[in-house]
């Protein structure tokens, strides 16, 4: 096996293991740290796909920003974290639903990839950040969705401040 395959196998095992530990862990902060490990594994897998831009974005946005937000929310709601280990009352139904979805996904992938198109090696992907950047500001390309995304982020910013703002004389 090539070095790339070893990197993929190790990274995917770490990702899957960290994801399972995240869902299974009793303490909230441990779950957040396991999520960081899983996101890091996905970043490594992006590198094996030669999508270096998204590996960096994964580190900056997910681990740098989103995970910090989650850790802050865990610390702000700390009084409730001890009761967080209990499972839902419909645990077996949930496991059944997840099993059905996994079986369906795997069936579709195997049927489509193996019988539809042959098992083909992924070639070296074009890793052109210049092309990506040009497509995002090109009026023929994705300039409008790009601007809509910026408006969405602004709305989320204002909305988050408005929702989390403590109003006097209300609640505690």
């Amino acid at each position: 096996m090539s070095a790339l395959q070893w990197v993929f196998i190790i990274a995917s095992l770490i990702t899957v293991g960290a994801a399972v530990m995240m869902v299974a862990s009793h303490r909230m902060m441990h779950a957040a740290l396991w999520l960081a490990v899983a996101l890091l594994g996905v970043a490594v897998i992006f590198v094996t796909l030669e999508a270096s831009f998204f590996a960096v974005v994964q580190l900056l946005v997910y681990i740098g920003a989103i995970l910090i937000l989650i850790v802050f929310a865990i610390m702000l709601t700390q009084r409730s974290t001890e009761a967080g280990s209990r499972l839902n009352s419909l645990a077996w139904g949930a496991a059944g639903v997840a099993g059905v979805i996994w079986t369906a996904l795997t069936y579709v992938f195997i049927r489509w990839v193996v019988s539809g198109t042959p098992m083909q090696e992924l070639g070296a992907s074009f890793d052109d950040v210049v092309l990506l950047g040009k497509a995002l500001v090109d009026a023929e390309g994705f300039a409008v969705p790009f601007e809509v995304a910026s408006v969405l982020l602004l709305a989320a910013l204002i909305g988050a401040v408005y929702i989390a703002f403590e109003r006097k004389g209300e609640g505690s």
């Binding site: 995240m22 869902v23 909230m28 779950a31 989650i70 929310a73 865990i74 709601t77 409730s80 974290t81 009761a83 967080g84 209990r86 499972l87 839902n88 419909l90 645990a91 139904g93 949930a94 496991a95 639903v97 997840a98």
Partner: peptide, 10 residues
């Protein structure tokens, strides 16, 4: 995780 856990942060 979404279906099993009861803490919304998880």
């Amino acid at each position: 995780g979404v279906l099993l856990r009861r803490n919304p942060l998880v």
